[in-house]
């Protein structure tokens, strides 16, 4: 499902984020990506949903080489990937409900389906009662859960999450992880970048370690 072939990423001024990364993540796998701050975790995720392109090597996600993707193919490629961004990336001038429904709108779902589906995912993250609030009215943890709900709403083939429990208390973190497992059990490939070592230990999943751009792997 996700393959990195000799991938290196060098930013401007020679700042190397990833170095010769080779890894494959199969369909339906649940994988943690961990490492210290600045290790290249976010870059790793950005390369998968083609926010960034590799400087060397190639990234194949969902059988598509991200370098070979034409500009017009990018939206369709991204529609199959749900992303929970570290900074949430919620649309500030839209309500929680509108943030969720927007994804369904751009995917062309019929109006009758939007409301039910949006409330379904909001219920999954326990925030159905905040549907009419704007992101600025929510706490960091609530915004994070909305970002998770948005990533799940169209049942993507791949789910990428960058520190999805960073702002959540331990109980809620467990709930969210259970939710990710549930999504994973339906066949979605889940890749979670996190600092939370306790969570990784508890979940006992395949874990990739990044350190200064170098990848090591620890199987469960």
């Amino acid at each position: 499902m996700i393959h990195f072939f000799h991938v290196s990423k060098v930013y401007e001024k020679g700042n190397r984020a990833l170095h010769e990364v080779n890894v494959s993540i199969g369909k339906g796998e649940f994988v943690f990506l961990t490492g210290p701050s600045g290790a290249g975790k976010t870059t790793f995720l950005k390369l998968i949903f083609r926010e960034e392109l590799p400087s060397y090597g190639r990234v194949v996600a969902n059988n598509q080489n991200t370098i070979a993707l034409g500009k017009r193919q990018i939206p369709d490629f991204r529609k199959k990937i749900g992303v929970v961004f570290q900074d949430f990336k919620l649309l500030e001038n839209r309500t929680v409900f509108e943030n969720i429904v927007f994804i369904l709108n751009v995917l062309g779902y019929p109006a009758s389906f939007l409301r039910d589906r949006a409330f379904y995912v909001l219920k999954l993250v326990g925030l159905q009662h905040r549907y009419d609030d704007y992101p600025r009215q929510l706490s960091g943890g609530e915004q994070q859960r909305i970002a998770i709900a948005r990533a799940l709403v169209n049942e993507p083939l791949i789910l990428l999450a960058d520190e999805p429990t960073g702002n959540l208390d331990p109980d809620l973190s467990l709930e969210i992880m259970a939710l990710f497992e549930k999504i994973n059990s339906r066949g979605t490939t889940v890749l979670i970048a996190t600092h939370d070592r306790d969570m990784i230990r508890r979940m006992r999943k395949r874990t990739l370690y990044l350190d200064h751009g170098h990848l090591q792997e620890h199987r469960k």
């Binding site: 369709d76 490629f77 991204r78 961004f85 990336k89 751009v106």
Partner: peptide, 16 residues
């Protein structure tokens, strides 16, 4: 610009 970038990252077609 920020909203537009978010829309693109979540897979919105250019026409949207």
């Amino acid at each position: 610009q920020n909203d537009i970038a978010i829309m693109q990252l979540v897979g919105a077609d250019m026409k949207f």
